Deep mutational scan, measured.
Amino acid sequence: GATAVSEWTEYKTADGKTLYYNNRTLESTWEKPQELK
């Protein structure tokens, strides 16, 4: 079967924080998503 690919993209901001963006739900979060833990 196909492996579930994470929908989350990780961005590094200018101040060194990490922003997570979900390509499916168009949601963005500063918290690390469950799927990435």
Rank of each mutant, 00 (worst) to 15 (best):
Q34L: 14
E27F: 04
K17D: 04
Y20M: 00
Y11M: 10
T25R: 01
P33Q: 02
T3F: 12
A4H: 14
L36Q: 06
P33K: 02
A4S: 13
N23A: 08
K12I: 13
K17Y: 07
E10G: 03
K37S: 14
E10A: 11
K37P: 08
K17I: 04
Y21D: 02
T29P: 01
T3S: 14
T25M: 01
V5I: 15
Y21V: 14
D15W: 05
K12G: 03
V5C: 15
E10K: 04
K12V: 13
G16K: 02
Q34G: 10
W8N: 00
T9G: 04
E31T: 09
S28E: 09
T3D: 12
E10T: 10
E27N: 04
W8K: 00
T3E: 11
L36F: 11
L26G: 15
W8V: 01
E7M: 05
G16R: 01
W8Y: 03
E31I: 13
P33N: 01
W8H: 00
N22Q: 01
Y11A: 03
T13P: 00
Y21N: 01
E10V: 13
T3M: 12
E10L: 09
S6Y: 08
N22I: 00
W8F: 01
E27P: 00
Q34I: 13
T25K: 01
T18M: 04
W8P: 01
Q34V: 13
P33H: 02
T18V: 12
K17E: 06
T3Y: 07
E7I: 07
A14K: 11
A14V: 11
A4G: 13
G1E: 11
E31D: 11
K32C: 15
T18I: 15
T9K: 06
K12P: 04
N22Y: 02
L19K: 09
T9M: 11
E10R: 04
R24Q: 09
E35I: 07
L36K: 06
K12A: 07
K37L: 15
L19Q: 04
L26E: 11
E27T: 06
E27W: 02
A14T: 10
Y21I: 15
Y20H: 00
R24N: 09
S28P: 03
A2Q: 12
A14H: 10
N22R: 01
K32S: 04
L26R: 11
P33Y: 02
A14L: 10
T9F: 09
A4M: 14
Y21K: 04
W30A: 09
E7Y: 08
K17R: 15
Y11W: 09
L26D: 09
R24P: 02
E31F: 06
Y11G: 03
T18A: 03
S28Q: 10
T29W: 04
K37G: 14
E31P: 02
T13I: 05
L36N: 06
A2W: 11
D15F: 05
T13D: 08
T29G: 03
A2G: 13
T13M: 15
G1T: 14
T3G: 13
A2R: 08
R24A: 09
T25N: 02
G16Q: 03
E27S: 04
W30Q: 06
K17A: 05
Q34S: 12
E7Q: 06
E10C: 15
L36T: 06
A14M: 09
T25P: 00
G1V: 12
A2K: 10
W30Y: 15
E35R: 03
Y21L: 08
K32A: 06
T9V: 14
Y21F: 15
Y11N: 03
W8S: 00
E31M: 06
L26A: 12
T3W: 10
E7R: 03
W8T: 00
E31Q: 08
L19G: 06
G1I: 14
T29H: 06
V5Y: 15
G16L: 01
S28D: 03
K32F: 04
